[in-house]
């Protein structure tokens, strides 16, 4: 968990992006945003036909380029959603980038950017994506939705950890939205030393709190509350 996440938890993405380049906490927040959403871009580039190395270089270069610049040329961050902004910007970047430029820029980019980027793991994960007719854009949308969920889950985990019961989250998480048969409530209740009834209340609260965390997270990437609902629906459509 990144320690300075809470301070930016509710800050809008375009504000984070526009914060002064020299402001270290601003930079951290920007990197954190990149960290959360690099995999969807990686998957998008891979599906678009780039090989693993080129994709990795492009993502790194793209973020470095994005973070190095104060004003963004390809899109206006004050307008629209973070999701479409990143996709458009990345698509343009990949199109404009010749191999030579990319190599030249890579060195500079790496210094600015400290994304925890494990190419092997990324490729492993990409290898598990279904090989079907899915377009790069659609894959990107789906991965984006999963990334948003992951971020919300991370936030929830840190909340439970801060509250002093990290084992609770680990035990309750299988009940959040189980796609398989969840463990028996009796066992988990005994493990957490609570009655099955209390456990069910706890699960209920976990779900409600997750919903809130998810909304907060999505709210950061859109412009208005109206867009929030729209974005959630778009994400829902992307995973179905």
């Amino acid at each position: 968990m990144n320690s300075d996440r809470p301070s930016f938890a509710t800050t809008h993405w375009s504000k984070v992006w526009q914060a002064s380049k020299d402001d270290s906490s601003g930079r951290n927040a920007r990197q954190q945003l990149c960290q959360q959403y690099w995999y969807p871009l990686y998957a998008f580039l891979r599906r678009s036909g780039h090989d693993p190395h080129a994709s990795e270089d492009l993502v790194q270069g793209f973020f470095a380029d994005l973070l190095a610049r104060e004003g963004l040329q390809h899109a206006d961050p004050r307008r629209g959603r973070f999701r479409s902004f990143l996709l458009t910007a990345c698509r343009n970047y990949a199109a404009n980038q010749s191999r030579a430029q990319r190599t030249a820029r890579r060195g500079g980019g790496r210094q600015l950017l400290s994304i925890d980027f494990d190419p092997e793991r990324a490729e492993q994960r990409y290898g598990r994506e279904p090989i079907d007719e899915e377009t790069p854009e659609r894959l990107f949308q789906r991965q984006w939705a999963l990334a948003v969920i992951d971020t919300a889950l991370d936030r929830l985990a840190s909340e439970y950890a801060n509250a002093g019961n990290p084992q609770w989250f680990a035990a309750l998480r299988p009940f959040l939205a189980p796609c398989d048969e969840p463990p028996s409530t009796e066992t988990v209740a005994r493990q957490l030393q609570m009655t099955p009834g209390a456990l069910r209340v706890a699960i209920h609260r976990l779900r409600r709190r997750f919903g809130e965390a998810l909304r907060e997270e999505v709210r950061r990437t859109v412009e208005s509350d109206e867009e929030l609902e729209e974005e959630l629906r778009a994400l829902l459509a992307a995973v179905r």
Binding site: L176, A177, R208, G211, L214, R215, L232, L235, L236, R240
Partner: peptide, 16 residues
């Protein structure tokens, strides 16, 4: 992935 992303996103849409 041990969860259903669609179910989770619905929690965000209708927390109540």
């Amino acid at each position: 992935q041990t969860y259903c992303p669609a179910c989770l996103l619905r929690m965000g849409l209708e927390p109540e």
